[in-house]
Design a protein around this nucleic acid. Structure first.
Lengths: 239, 239
DNA sequence: ATTCGACTCGCACACTGTACGACAGCCTCG
DNA sequence: CGAGGCTGTCGTACAGTGTGCGAGTCGAAT
């Protein structure tokens, strides 16, 4: 069987909203409610239809398949990240990175989706465009602009997704950091003899005055600032 | 209902292999074959059982549920990344990053899993431990060691996962970069007027002598080197 | 010989995405 | 006015999913 050509919600065009019956916006809003309330696994076409007082298959008029729906809700997530248009490049990059991080933290179900489903929606594109603009104004030239924004996005995603994944796992199991350590502890200790540095790390984490939330923020900031410093040194105007 | 405590394959202990019948290793190997051949969606317990000449539910004696199986195969992926034990910290970090990148590229089905399922397996842990060791030897102190390895891992994941996701999408649709641009092009052009920098980027990508493979490698290298430079500047011994 | 543990497996259940065809209401054209 | 066609909804059905349960097999230890 010959494979279908590449397709995305954004590459098909779609009529504007009608005044009666379901609309794409309603569907996306309802989907977001389900996702935010009960997570990714709770989103099924039947439940979504039921919430809208409609049959499950009615949704398929407005959306080709579930994947398209996912693309749509993901663009709503990207819509949550604000990118200033006139700040310095470092501030713009920082605001973008923290904005993306918070968008994902606010919608934890997006962790497993966020670099995996194509991000071609208007919100994703404008965010990317503005970030590029900041790097252009900073003085990056040619392909380096691409490289720089890719790097910032990559770090932000790579730092946030695993973080949220842990939070998700802990939420699902109803455990907090302490109980988690109680569960994991024995295994870690058993393996520690061959892995001295990991053991050290583990001890850092079990200290009394250790707050995982601020620790994560600090780690994020540390890496982000290091990356931005490294990028800054690559500016043509840099010594 | 009270939520279950946190659990992972690695937090339960498990008997070694028996000489007859199925074993965990066999199951994991067969699962990897299916995954590498046909991707994540092709892995079902029934198909896996069939490939082993066993009933689907027989697998559940060796593995608590499918998620555990996923954890096991993911650790095989981590096993593919080699981390030198005596090189300089920059070389160690570079080898790790490229190794992880290639491990994911070689097993594209892992893209949607890689920062999302807990990585507590022996291979993941030793890789992390060795990377930490390199940073310790480099002179990082205290919690900065954590921050630095987190940053390197984050960048690598965040850069590679979306890259592989695109490759997956293109493979599934049977299109190469050119056909993809033919499909996407019109939409991009329509949106370009409001997004000047994105338009510029798009034009960079459609040039004649543009090879997406080397471009991605260059982008990866650029970001990684920038990050390592930024980390180096944070060494206590740095001016 | 019997009892026990380690395993395997068929069946069944609840649920998933979605193809299909029937149906309704409205708009336009003859 | 009537006849289609377009837009939109929905019930049914199908092929699949992960997995709980209980019955069954087989080798070893008592």
């Amino acid at each position: 069987m010959p494979p279908k050509p590449f397709s995305s919600v954004w590459t098909r065009e779609h009529r504007g909203p009608r005044e009666q019956g379901l609309s794409r916006d309603q569907i996306v809003r309802a989907a977001l409610e389900i996702l935010d309330a009960d997570g990714l696994d709770a989103l099924s076409m039947r439940k979504l239809g039921a919430r809208l007082g409609a049959g499950a298959t009615s949704l398929y008029w407005h959306v080709a398949h579930k994947d398209e729906l996912i693309e749509l809700v993901m663009d709503e997530v990207y819509g949550k990240v604000a990118v200033p248009e006139e700040a310095s490049w470092r501030e713009t990059a920082g605001v973008f990175a923290y904005g993306l991080r918070h968008a994902i933290l606010d919608h934890p179900w997006s962790a497993g989706l966020i670099g995996v489903v194509p991000a071609l929606g208007p919100n994703a594109l404008t965010a990317a465009d503005r970030l590029m603009g900041a790097f252009v104004r900073a003085g990056f030239e040619g392909i380096d602009v691409d490289y720089a924004v890719t790097a910032v996005v990559a770090f932000t995603l790579g730092a946030t997704v695993p973080e949220v994944a842990w939070l998700n796992a802990m939420a699902a199991s109803g455990t907090d950091m302490d109980k988690l350590h109680a569960d994991i502890g024995p295994v870690v200790v058993k393996l520690a003899s061959e892995r001295p540095h990991l053991r050290q790390r583990y001890e850092n984490y079990t200290g009394e005055k250790f707050d995982p939330h601020v620790a994560r923020r600090l780690a994020f900031d540390f890496g982000l600032m290091a990356l931005l410093d490294g990028l800054q040194a690559r500016l043509p105007s840099s010594p």
